[in-house]
Simulated scan of single mutants.
Amino acid sequence: MIRITALKWVPPFAAGQVRDHRLRWVLREVGWPYEVRLLDAPTLKSPDYRHAQPFGQVPVLEEDGRPTLFESGAVVLDVAMRANRLLPEDPGQRSLAICWLVAALNSIEPALMNVAEVAYFTRDEAQQAARRPVVDAFARQRLDALQGALGDRTWMVGDDFSVADLMLSSVLKIADRLDLLEGFDALQRYAQRCWDRPAHREAIAEQCATIDAHAQVDMRYDALKTG
Rank of each mutant, 00 (worst) to 15 (best):
T43Q: 05
G56R: 01
V58E: 00
A139G: 06
I98F: 13
G148S: 10
F55Y: 05
A199N: 08
Q207R: 11
A52Y: 00
Q216S: 09
S46T: 14
D20C: 08
D78T: 04
F121E: 01
R177D: 02
Q188P: 08
I211W: 07
S162K: 13
R82G: 01
W195T: 04
A205R: 13
G65L: 12
W9F: 15
R197T: 05
Y190G: 00
A186R: 15
S95I: 15
P198S: 05
N106F: 01
A139V: 09
G151S: 11
G148Y: 06
R66T: 10
R140H: 10
Q57K: 12
A203I: 14
T5M: 03
F121M: 05
A149C: 11
E35D: 09
V30M: 04
W32F: 04
M1W: 00
L27T: 06
P42Q: 03
L181R: 06
N84Q: 06
R22I: 01
A130C: 01
D218I: 11
P47R: 05
L180M: 10
L143C: 11
G56P: 05
L44N: 01
N84W: 11
A74M: 09
L178A: 03
H21D: 02
F161A: 05
Y120L: 11
I204H: 10
P110A: 10
D20H: 11
D20K: 10
S169R: 03
A83H: 04
L143A: 09
L77C: 09
L23K: 04
L69I: 02
H51F: 13
R142T: 09
G73L: 12
D218F: 00
V75H: 05
P42T: 13
F161D: 02
D20G: 03
Q188C: 12
A6G: 03
I108V: 12
K225F: 12
L146V: 09
R50A: 07
R19S: 08
F184C: 09
D185E: 13
C99P: 05
L87E: 05
D136G: 00
P11Y: 15
V76R: 02
K45G: 05
R37Q: 04
E89W: 13
D212R: 15
V217M: 03
D179M: 11
D144G: 15
L101Q: 12
L39Q: 02
I204E: 01
L178P: 07
V217C: 06
K225T: 13
A119M: 12
P88Y: 14
A119Q: 09
F13P: 05
A199H: 08
D185Q: 12
N106A: 14
L23W: 14
N114K: 15
R50S: 08
D179A: 12
A52K: 01
C194K: 03
K225I: 14
D185V: 15
A126W: 00
E71I: 06
P67E: 04
L187E: 00
A191F: 15
W100N: 00
D64L: 15
Q147T: 10
D124K: 04
Y221D: 07
S162I: 15
D64I: 15
L38A: 04
R201Q: 12
E35Y: 01
S95Q: 11
L7Q: 03
A205E: 03
A175K: 01
M167A: 10
D20V: 13
A103Q: 07
V217D: 07
S107Y: 08
H51V: 09
Q192V: 13
